[in-house]
């Protein structure tokens, strides 16, 4: 493929949306209230919508009659390039909100830069996504405050969730080869540039939610290179079940 870097760059962004959308989809019907069920489904639908736009673009690059679904469903685990953060399980509602918020702050910063990409398709997808993700961040941020500064029980659960998920945040700001190349030609984003702004914004909200900001000491990396946590295989087993069990069919 002549646009190998562009292709890998798109997957890096799109896979995170797909996997997070998939995780949220698991929750439908099991949330703490009907209202939150409906809200989380909206977020999931936004993410899957974004994923489709990215994959349709990526499919065009491969050509050969490939479709968004070939990309979504027919890769092996090592070929998914999402960050580790988004594949973490729905341990409880606080965990879900913590994962969401830690991703949303990053996601909005990423799209806000990507909308200036010299690649018109990416710029357009980003511009549309910004509005959606702004709302995601508002929603998850509000919940961090409610749970952090709610009851003792919710505070403890929220703090545990933040402490657990913190180790996956630094990966958001690592640059793959494709990232670096795309950033050099102004079609991709140099994520390292907003790393400090990210930690500042997240820390401010955590403090407002009476939560402690964990130390930035030990981190886990790998998702962007296709080396995932053990949760990923099970997630993919669900995601890919139909396409694997019934290959080459239309649905």
């Amino acid at each position: 493929m002549k646009n190998e870097n562009l292709y890998r760059y798109i997957l890096g962004i799109a896979d995170s949306s797909l996997i997070l959308g998939q995780r949220l989809g698991e929750l439908c019907g099991h949330g703490p209230s009907l209202e939150t069920d409906i809200a989380l489904t909206n977020i999931s639908l936004d993410l899957i919508g974004q994923t489709r736009s990215y994959y349709q673009y990526a499919a065009k690059l491969i050509g050969d009659g490939k479709s968004e679904d070939d990309i979504a469903f027919l890769r092996i685990e090592r070929e998914y390039l999402n960050v580790l953060l988004v594949e973490q399980p729905n341990t409880h509602f606080g965990y879900v909100m913590a994962r969401q918020f830690l991703f949303d702050v990053y996601h909005l910063m990423l799209l806000s830069e990507l909308k200036n990409s010299s690649d018109e398709t990416l710029a357009a997808i980003a511009a549309k996504g910004i509005k959606e993700v702004s709302y995601h961040k508002r929603f998850s941020g509000d919940w961090i405050k409610r749970l952090g500064d709610g009851t003792q029980e919710s505070h403890d659960k929220m703090q545990d969730a933040i402490n657990d998920l913190w180790r996956y945040t630094d990966e958001l700001f690592t640059m793959t080869e494709a990232d670096a190349e795309m950033s050099r030609n102004n079609s991709g984003v140099d994520v390292t540039r907003f790393k400090e702004a990210y930690y500042e914004e997240v820390s401010r909200l955590l403090r407002e939610a009476t939560l402690e900001v964990p130390e930035r000491k030990y981190f886990q990396y790998g998702g962007k290179k296709g080396v995932h946590t053990e949760h990923m295989g099970y997630l993919l087993a669900d995601l890919q079940y139909m396409q694997r069990a019934y290959p080459n069919m239309k649905w």
């Binding site: 209230s33 209202e35 409906i38 709302y135 508002r138």
Partner: peptide, 19 residues
Amino acid sequence: LHAADAEMALENARDVYTR
């Protein structure tokens, strides 16, 4: 709808009634 505070009520209303 049900909500614990005004902000949540507004967000829930957006999610429930303007989909």
